[in-house]
Nucleic acid binder design. Sequence first.
RNA 1: GCCCCCAUAGCCCAAUGGCAGAGGCGGGCGACUUAAAAUCGCUACAGUGUGGGUUCGAGUCCCACUGGGGGCACCA
Length: 823
Amino acid sequence: MTEEISYDIQAIQEKWLPIWDELRPFASGNPDDSRPKKYVLDMFPYPSGDLHMGHAEAYALGDVISRYWVQKGFNVMHPIGWDSFGLPAENAAIKRGLDPKGWTYDNIAQQRSSMRRYACSFDWDRVLVTSDPIYYRWNQWLFLQFYKKGLAYRKNSNVNWCPSCQTVLANEQVVQGLCERCDSVVTKKALTQWYFKVTDYADRLLDDLDTLEGNWPSKVLQMQRNWIGRSQGADVEFLIEGRQEPVTVFTTRPDTLFGATFMVVAADSSLAAELAQKADSETKAAFDAYLEKVKQSNDIERLATDRPKTGVFLGAYAINPVNDERLPIWASDYVLADYGHGAIMAVPAHDQRDFDFAKAMNLPVRMVVDTGEGDPAVTGQPTTGDGVLTNSGELNGLHKGEAIARMIELLASRGKGKAAKNFRLRDWLISRQRYWGTPIPIIHCANCGEVPVPEDQLPIELPSAEGLDLAPKGKSPLGGATDWLNVPCPNCGAPAQRDSDTMDTFVDSSWYFLRYLSPNSTTEAFPVEAAKEWAPVDQYVGGVTHAILHLLYARFFTKVLHDLGFVDFEEPFTRLLNQGMVLMNGSAMSKSRGNLVKLSDQLDEHGVDAIRLTMAFAGPPEDDIDWADVSPAGSAKFLARAWRIAKDVTSAPGVNVVAGNAELRKATHTFLRDFAPSIESFKFNVGVAKIMELVNALRKAIDGSVGGADPAVREGAEVVAKALSLFAPYTAEEMWSMLGHEPGVALAGLQEADSSLLVESSTVAVIQVDGKLRDKLEVSLEISEDELRELALSSENTKRAIGDRQIANVIVRAPKLVNIATK
RNA sequence: GCCCCCAUAGCCCAAUGGCAGAGGCGGGCGACUUAAAAUCGCUACAGUGUGGGUUCGAGUCCCACUGGGGGCACCA
């Protein structure tokens, strides 16, 4: 009496985990390893709790890619770490009354254990945690390199301020005028803050996107281009009556200079304040009142596009450099202080905003480009398109493009202007007034000013949180750690203070992919020689949420490191895959929405493999997965079906497959031909479907006349086990073992298709009449066009379809198709 | 307002310009069973959002529209 064994995924999981721990199939650091190198990287998680469904998708897909290249015979580096500094840790710690450190490291331990259970193919010798001093020490070192190069600097300016988080935000962290983290309305505050000079790299960050075309999602490239936002135009100098220095304005339309009828300066700019200062007391009072109102308005109000134009006349005049006209100077909040020069020439006839302002303030509108749509002064519609210059002196008769070039020449020859470009991108504000981050390695000395901490004194470790008030109050909590704060100046020895701000956590993630090369090194940030071998990252996998911020900053760091001679490449991530989100019933999962699906529950219920398989099979990886639409139970059912195939194989390992059933062998080798391309083009769902197809064929063969003893059945079952190991490592390993092999199906390799098995002797030709299918004919592969044409025209079905119509044309694509077009 | 992406069966999704269906979910029928579950087998269901165009031939290319999603948004 034989006992029927059934598929028990939980037992299989328990069985293989310790064996894999021993086997370490994904270790990449052996110096004798002669396999070609490949670097596959998953975006590292934030340790905010245990892994969730989103992680499960991301790591399932990253694992398919990583395991695929291992199977292909590559030495794949697939490391993992934790992006463990940042506000959420701090806020959670404050809320629970815990040290952010304890909270963070508990979560890391939890996630690490979950990743092991989830069978992520990580190289556990390459692990980093950004809140470890051994890591953030190199943030500080990099900061000092940037500082030496003039790429890290401090300035006082109006910064984005989150009144709830009580910290400054980078432009990139302000979404629709709201704080990215807490959705509070962001306000402005004048503060002295540290910046990285990312604008120095704006051109390269934009232009080099072209080199990623085809390897990054076009959506991400577009978002990056959009964000950098380069505008080409000209800087034009205007003299100001009663002022020594001319004022420069940036314009993309120098061709319309003759149509300028006023000038506008940003209300919150120093120029506006200066001009108001010189004006009569009434004007000054009006300006002060206006400025007060502007300062009180927040980003939400500023961003409203249908907002009426407001402003005050400053009592001053600018002189148009091409016709010496006097242009009244106004202050308004529709001009931004930190873009261009904070001042514009207003051409209401050809700019909607200037037109709206002119209308509101009753200022003149003068058409200088005739677009054929009528005079804006009459129609009330500014015209922004191409046309012929008019009212523009020597530019008259030229088209827009010619006129722009001509005007730039003209201005340049008179020393009144030059071609110029501007970027939407601003410098990266990196200071944060929070505790849980990398301390900025600068000491402020009354005598010496800013003094960089000598490199041999790094790291500047965070003081213990004990006794510090971490609650946000607008000043860094580190300022309260007086023992830590007060140090002698490294230069002169006088009493001095450490900088008490910490770095934006995006600094941590801007170079971590290099740190994996030597995550525990105490002598260097990363090994320059090893970076030449492994980097850049061949395949990066992560969420589209990081399409702008993280990727832009990592690209910036890479270019700086390139210029400093540390790396020999300029782009960090050669290929990028953005996976979608996991939704539930159409929306993002959240506790408050009540649609949270717990990953651990899913794993308990269906098993790791079924969840991983479901993630891969749900659809194209970049699409969102609605968990309500997919069937982890179905995946589990399929895995059991695959498992039973292995159980039903009765031939011995190593049996000669050549004698096996030809039809089944053909199915197996067709699979081998088609599987790899679907994985390499990220069509994981299609790859899984093909495995299902092969399993179906095997089932049919075993239950039918072929039988489980046929060598072709073994061949097919082994191929299934190996292919399935990308998606369902436990089931695959169990199958591999049942098939009589030693553990390590992940390293077994997937053979190439035997093309001799795929040769067809005949094929089915499709006969169409006027594009519609009318007949199918079995024909030889070598059939000539003429033969096939004859066969098609003599077919009864074809004749019937043609009826009494006349044949106009016969298209023959031997041996596959004939299309008969009738009149 | 500007830019980008998407639309195939009840549902999730396949389909080098050449037979609309690979795979799955759900449904129906059958085999096995005393019965059920599990398993195995069979099966129905759309002419590809709408309207034009290019082509011998369009789900696929082009144009417009509708619907959905995303990015940017007073950036001169």
